[in-house]
Design a protein around this nucleic acid. Structure first.
Lengths: 173, 173
DNA sequence: GGGGACATGTAATTGGTTACATGATTAC
DNA sequence: GTAATCATGTAACCAATTACATGTCCCC
């Protein structure tokens, strides 16, 4: 978590509120956070000296603008260089699909159809984000945006194919 | 968590140890758990009456065989029917990629190459699981197995394409 | 004057991991 | 005899969410 905050501050100075908004926009699909984790994290990082907190008043509004320090920048790079704990994807729908033999077939079909619908909504949202941000972000951020787009397309295709397969079958048994 | 345990017990009676082993085999890529969460969960479920615990001794080994009750079966079905909280995938490597502008280009390429290697290892492991289980599981469990296989293939392809793109570029800026 | 976005934070709780503690059986 | 696997559990800890608590500015 701390590393992700550092990552955002590496893109520019911002407030806790802004970090939350940015996470909601850009990394929501593969990482999310609430104020309850952002502010304590910011506090920790400030105490450690990885970020600097500036209390300012901007058009009458008191805010705390955080910026990354050299120490923080070093920590960020170290984290980026460290090996990511091998792929660990938590995907609840798939768990349900795994156990869905306990459901009647039509219910299972419904489940998958609904999931496809959700994915497609996600795709639309991502497209909006894309329209807003393309051209205003660096290519690394673009990579992940494209990843999201391509992944959802893959998933939709996969589940559509699954639906066809299910139609042919009698059930999970 | 409790629901996942119920799911496994829905497939047959087993011990906590066996549940852990099964999770490691079949759902590891999209769900994992440790003893520290399995046993307390089993305890909770027993107290609630969703599972039944039978202390037996089998070839000198004392074990507790858990089985799902009618109540538990109902809870399992309810969970399966409940809408999954819309796709929530936590993928640390992608977060790193998102912020990787702070890394030199060759380092970034290395990062992606290593991730591909890891994915390929995962693929091999999954293939082993496939060889062992295909024919011995119901088609729902097969769905998720195939999903894993197809997903990894997609990911490898995607990252390989990314590498090519990266070669052409000068950096993330 | 009221709703929405801006803005910051804490407290209680949840959900989980890691590490510890223990001990039997089996196969080499 | 010793290492791997089978087997069960607890305690300390950690990371994060939810809900709460508070207040301002801006636009209608």
């Amino acid at each position: 978590m701390d590393s992700v905050i550092l990552g955002f501050l590496g893109l520019g100075d911002m407030t806790g509120y802004e970090i939350k908004k940015r996470i909601g926009l850009s990394t929501r699909f593969f990482y999310n956070a609430s104020y309850g984790s952002i502010y304590p994290s910011l506090k920790r990082l400030t105490e450690k000296g990885s970020v600097k907190a500036d209390r300012v008043v901007e058009n009458g509004r008191a805010k705390v603008i955080y910026s990354i320090t050299d120490k923080g920048r070093q920590e960020l790079v170290d984290w980026l260089k460290s090996p990511a704990p091998s792929v660990h994807i938590r995907y609840e729908f798939l768990v349900k699909l795994f156990f869905s033999q306990h459901l009647p077939r039509d219910r299972r079909v419904e489940m998958v159809s609904q999931h496809i619908a959700e994915l497609q909504m996600g795709l639309e949202e991502l497209r909006k984000v894309e329209a807003e941000t393309r051209g205003r972000v660096d290519s690394c951020q673009l990579y992940t945006l494209n990843f999201g787009l391509d992944l959802i397309a893959f998933l939709v295709g996969w589940y559509e194919n699954l639906l066809e397969q299910m139609e042919e079958e009698h059930g999970c048994e």
